[in-house]
Design a protein around this nucleic acid. Structure first.
Lengths: 100, 100
DNA sequence: CGTGTAAGGAATTCTGACACG
DNA sequence: CGTGTAAGGAATTCTGACACG
């Protein structure tokens, strides 16, 4: 269901190219808790395609003048919804003993 | 049909971590024409998840003792098959005027 | 609050070459 | 042929800070 899209493998320079956002902005949104890239052993940030998509949404919100704090809440709510769906799906699958 | 899987965004260090192959090997297989990463403006190589999968297949073949030249042919043949399928699908879709 | 920038260091990547075989 | 390694340079990324507002 996820795999490639959620695998954190993209470095910040490439994320910059993909989104058009400055590295400063990208790091700042992380600092504000809007997204959570992984770190390699040497400490460089790695992003997923999902992160890239999220950053583009964030950019849209920012253009509308929405503050990072509010965006953070929206993101959190979307994740909650998503998790509810995932759990529901999990229960359904368990109930019918469905596979893959 | 492709999108994320074929997007070239992964740098060689990360490919090394994902595949376990040395950077030397990864560059060498490119030199032999087994795969074709893209280059950023500054010249660093960027790989896709498809490239990563291909590299793991290559590693298997190499362990079996298959030479790069032969692997290159096998890869080429698989791509041909794939293209035939894609074209066939394209014609079918065109015939029925299907979308997406 | 959100973002730009200069600063210095550490880690990454690149190429061409020598080595062994 | 396939792969390791040392070499030097160029580009990347990181953090903490100052700036403006």
């Amino acid at each position: 269901m996820s795999s490639y899209k959620d695998k954190k493998v993209i470095s910040i320079g490439t994320v910059h190219e993909l989104t058009g956002l400055s590295e400063r902005k990208i790091r700042y949104y992380e600092e504000r808790g809007l997204l959570f890239p992984e770190r390699t052993k040497r400490g460089t940030r790695k992003y997923s395609f999902s992160d890239v998509e999220l950053l583009m949404k964030i950019a849209d919100k920012r253009e509308e003048g929405v503050q990072t704090k509010e965006i953070k809440e929206e993101v959190r709510n979307e994740n909650k919804k998503q998790m509810r769906n995932d759990m529901l799906r999990g229960q359904i699958n368990a109930h019918f003993n469905m596979r893959k």
